[in-house]
């Protein structure tokens, strides 16, 4: 591929992702409303889709306030970190065999590293705010991240073992006969739970917990800085959905009546909707319950899954 083609792919991926993240504002509000027997925003534009525009404009015109007691530069940088790190993770996502920014040979590790970086945004944001609620949220975010990051990586290792490669392109191609969801159902469940905790989505929005901590780590943020956290969250949902699809549901693979990218987006969208469905249905667990489940149940399960997968793989290969 020429340099220009690479540039176009990068720009195209950025354009599509940021639009998806913005569009999810509308999707989430409409779907939540549907699941609660309401209608949701339906005034601005056809089916209310222009609520995205209205929301963005509103965020831009809000007072961009930095509290005098905040650590100014860290406060400004923090929201950018989350968007940056999540966007970086998309580098390794194969949308189709051709459309991929870079098929790194450490793909999955790169994704895990980048998504862990996202927690810096929470910690720095909460710390720089110099506010007890923000700090509590940041602390919760950090410990939740540590608890869930561990078995998030381990839950993916089963797939990596079966493929024998960290490259996402190889992993998708290895699913031509059978999606890994069949061979690694436990891995899928564990990864998805970790993914919810990773993106701080309900029911695991402990660092935000608006009923306990005002708005958690972004209590002090307003305007577009808050918007960045917001977009980071939606990008995170898209990322986790995309990785789930790539790792367990055959990525771009599908019947030939639809092009590969359409399959990828359809599957990803289904998982995004599932994220929203979880928000609509499940209550938030208590903080210590969350940590306990993470360390005492899910981590041993991930290890057991890894061990059994390894044993079976060894047996088959002889």
């Amino acid at each position: 591929m020429t340099v220009m083609q690479h540039v176009w792919i990068v720009l195209g991926v950025l354009f599509v992702l940021l639009n998806i993240a913005a569009g999810l504002i509308w999707v989430e509000r409409r779907m939540l409303a549907m699941w609660q027997d309401r209608l949701g925003p339906n005034r601005a534009g056809p089916l209310g889709i222009l609520i995205v525009l209205a929301d963005t404009l509103k965020l831009f015109f809000k007072e961009d306030w930095i509290p005098p007691f905040a650590d100014k530069w860290v406060f400004i940088v923090a929201p950018a970190v989350v968007v940056g790190s999540v966007l970086m993770s998309f580098v390794i996502i194969p949308f189709t065999p051709q459309i991929i920014v870079s098929d790194l040979n450490v793909g999955i590790l790169f994704f895990l590293a980048m998504s862990s970086l996202g927690v810096y945004s929470i910690v720095l944001g909460g710390w720089a705010s110099n506010n007890k609620y923000s700090l509590l949220g940041a602390m919760r975010g950090a410990s939740q991240m540590i608890a869930y990051e561990v078995f998030m990586g381990l839950s993916l290792m089963g797939v990596v073992m079966l493929t024998g490669s960290f490259k996402l392109g190889d992993i998708v191609n290895a699913q031509k006969d059978m999606w890994f969801v069949v061979k690694q159902p436990l891995g899928l469940i564990l990864f998805f739970i970790a993914g919810i905790a990773e993106t701080h989505r309900l029911p695991f929005d402990i660092p935000e917990a608006e009923s306990e901590l005002v708005a958690g780590y972004h209590s002090e943020y307003s305007g577009m800085k808050f918007g960045m956290f917001f977009i980071g969250e939606y990008l995170g949902i898209t990322l986790i959905s995309a990785v789930t699809v790539t790792m367990f549901f055959g990525g771009w693979l599908g019947w030939s009546f639809l092009p590969p990218w359409a399959w990828f987006f359809l599957k990803t969208f289904a998982f995004i909707l599932f994220f929203i469905l979880l928000r609509a249905s499940l209550p938030r667990p208590r903080y210590d319950q969350l940590m306990e489940t993470g360390w005492k149940i899910l981590l041993p399960l991930a290890l057991a899954n890894l061990m059994i997968t390894g044993a079976v793989a060894l047996l088959i290969r002889g």
Binding site: M34, D37, R38, L277, S281, L282
Partner: peptide
Amino acid sequence: RTIWLTFLHLFKRHVT
């Protein structure tokens, strides 16, 4: 079960 029941609400009439 909760998730499933919530999903079924997609096919219910809205009250708005």
